[in-house]
Every structure is written in structure tokens, then in C-alpha cells.
């Protein structure tokens, strides 16, 4: 379509009129459409927030108020449940244990995944495709399948009920995930950069640490976020491989089931506290997260 200043044929005149007409109509329609869009988005966010609000609401009510009748907000605002969790070692150690094995797992996974992802993104070698698929299958392995062998394996080697056991067990799905995401990000870096650096006399380790890692720092950030996420939310393996010494918060939460029923207020407060680390972490990677979810491949 030409964009010259004066229309020459009747066909062109008609086309321009059509474009202008379309633009006018679009403008007239766009205001209500904008509002419909915002309305739908708001509705979805309410759907997401409502159950979480309810948890928050309960965590600030005393158990008498919770069981006494339905109240839409805490009428006698109390922080007794939070105080109980934060002052009782058997409770807050659950959070410390969870965070410990999550951090250990993040460190192990990223250190071994970085060189592996580089190899997959830059080189062809015997069995590379099969190896990558095999890695992927570990991502798909149901933790329930590995429950019993893990229990026996870690018991035999004397790692049962330690943070290391859970951190290693979570490597099963976190290392393949890290390799997959990092490979996507690394493939976005032009290969010429590597070649130039090698010609310039950089050794491989020096190039990797000084040049390559800074270049994919956002990819590493996003990968760390995902490692955190999947290790933090997984509980079946974490609670099976621990008893008291490294018990994650998830198993501590089962304490709320007592002889006299469930301690709803404490359960709600403990649940609320498990959501907070996630929100803190997501804030830091909010600008890259969308790309990370596409595994660096958009």
C-alpha cells in the first residue's frame, strides 16, 4: 500500500477513507473496551486473592472467633498465632530448615548446571540429544516413584534427616530444569563473543567467569528464582527424608492437628508465612520472569 500524499485512483481514495473510518470507529469503541479489559483482569485478580485473603483473615483471628461464626474480617485483631510461631523453636526451625536446604540446592544446582548448559548450547558431541532427553525425563519423574529408594539410599549412606539429603534429592528435578532454562538464555548470546575472547587470549575458565557469566546474569537470576520456587514448594520428598533434625515447615504444620481438632489460627498463620519468601523473591525478578517462564526461548 502506498503512502503518497495525494490519492490518484478511486481505489486509493476508497482505501484511505476506509482506514480513516476504521481508526475513528476503533477510537470510539476503545474506551469501553479498555474498561471491559480492566474489569476482566480485576475479576481474575480477585479470584486469585480471595482464598489468600481468607487465609490472612483467619491468621489474625483467635480460634474462638474462627469457630464462633463467619466474620469477613478479624473483629478482635490478634497476632497470638504469629507470636506462637516466632517464639517456639519447633515452629520457626521449620522455616530455617526449609530455607537451608533450598539455598543449598540452589547453590549445587547452579554450579553444575552452568558448564553443562554451556556445553549443550555451544557444542555437538556424541549422544548430546539423547542426554538432553534423559535429563528432561528426570524433570518428569514423579517424586512418589523415588520415595522409597531415596529413603533407603540416604538411610544407607547416613544422610537421612540432614539438609544435604533434601538438597540432593531436589537436584533430581532442579538440575535438569536449570540446564534447560540456562541453555535457552545462553543460545541467545552470539557465538562470536566466545570466539573473539579465545582469540584475545582468554583461557576458558577466565572467559566463562569474567565475560560469559556477567552477560547472562539476568538468565542466572531467573534460573535461581525457578530453583528456589520448585525446591520451596516440593514437600513429599522433603518430609519423607527428614524426621526431626531437618524437618521442613510443611511437616511441622501437621502439628496443628491435635486431639481437640485442628488449630485453624496457627495453621493459617504458618501458611501465610510460607507465602512471604516467594513474594520477596518474585519482586526481584519481576522484569525477567515472563521470559524465564518461556525457558529463555521467546
Amino acid at each position: 500500500m502506498s503512502a503518497s500524499s495525494s490519492p490518484k485512483t478511486p481505489e486509493e481514495v476508497r482505501q484511505r477513507a476506509a482506514v480513516a473510518d476504521n481508526r475513528r470507529r476503533r477510537k470510539a469503541r476503545s474506551a469501553p473496551r479498555q474498561w471491559r479489559r480492566r474489569g476482566l483482569m480485576a475479576a481474575y485478580i480477585v479470584f486469585v486473592l480471595l482464598p489468600v485473603y481468607w487465609l490472612l483473615n483467619m491468621s489474625f483471628q483467635s480460634n474462638n472467633e474462627i469457630l464462633g461464626g463467619l466474620t469477613l474480617w478479624p473483629e478482635n485483631f490478634t497476632v497470638e498465632h504469629y507470636a506462637k510461631i516466632l517464639t517456639n523453636a519447633s515452629w520457626y526451625m521449620g522455616y530455617i530448615n526449609s530455607i537451608t536446604y533450598v539455598l543449598m540446592n540452589m547453590l549445587i544446582s547452579i554450579v553444575v548446571a552452568l558448564p553443562a548448559a554451556y556445553a549443550f548450547s555451544r557444542y555437538q558431541f556424541i549422544g548430546d540429544k539423547h542426554l538432553f532427553f534423559w535429563l528432561l525425563t528426570n524433570l518428569m519423574a514423579p517424586p512418589a516413584v523415588f520415595l522409597l529408594p531415596y529413603f533407603q539410599l540416604y538411610y544407607t549412606v547416613g544422610l537421612f534427616d540432614t539438609h544435604v539429603a533434601v538438597a540432593l534429592a531436589h537436584c533430581l528435578f532442579n538440575i535438569p530444569l536449570a540446564v534447560w532454562i540456562l541453555e535457552g538464555f545462553m543460545s541467545g548470546v552470539p557465538k562470536e563473543i566466545d570466539e573473539t575472547a579465545f582469540i584475545g587470549g582468554y583461557s576458558f575458565p577466565r572467559f566463562f567467569v569474567k565475560i560469559f557469566i556477567p552477560m547472562i546474569s539476568s538468565g542466572i537470576g531467573v534460573t535461581l528464582f525457578f530453583l528456589f520456587m520448585f525446591s520451596w514448594v516440593e514437600l513429599l520428598l522433603a518430609s519423607t527424608l527428614t524426621s526431626t533434625g531437618a524437618q521442613p515447615i510443611a511437616s511441622v504444620m501437621t502439628q496443628t492437628k491435635g486431639a481437640s481438632g485442628i488449630d485453624w489460627g496457627t495453621l493459617a498463620a504458618a501458611g501465610t508465612l510460607t507465602i512471604l519468601p516467594g513474594i520477596v523473591v518474585v519482586y526481584f525478578v519481576r522484569n525477567h520472569i515472563a521470559k524465564g517462564f518461556a525457558l529463555g526461548r521467546t
Binding site: 487465609l55 520451596w232 504444620m253 495453621l267 507465602i275 519481576r286
Partner: peptide, 26 residues
């Protein structure tokens, strides 16, 4: 955009048994 991203991501970061508890209470 930032607020929507964080709120939409939130359910993914809740431990799975807590998701169960949230809906049990709800």
C-alpha cells in the same frame, strides 16, 4: 504491569500442601 505480574505469579510460589490448606479453609 508489575503489580499484575507479581499477583498472577503468587499462587505458583505457595508450597503445595499450603495450597491444599488454603482451599480446605476456604
Amino acid at each position: 504491569a508489575s503489580v499484575a505480574l507479581i499477583l498472577v505469579t503468587m499462587p505458583l510460589l505457595i508450597p503445595w500442601n499450603v495450597v491444599g490448606s488454603i482451599w480446605q479453609i476456604f
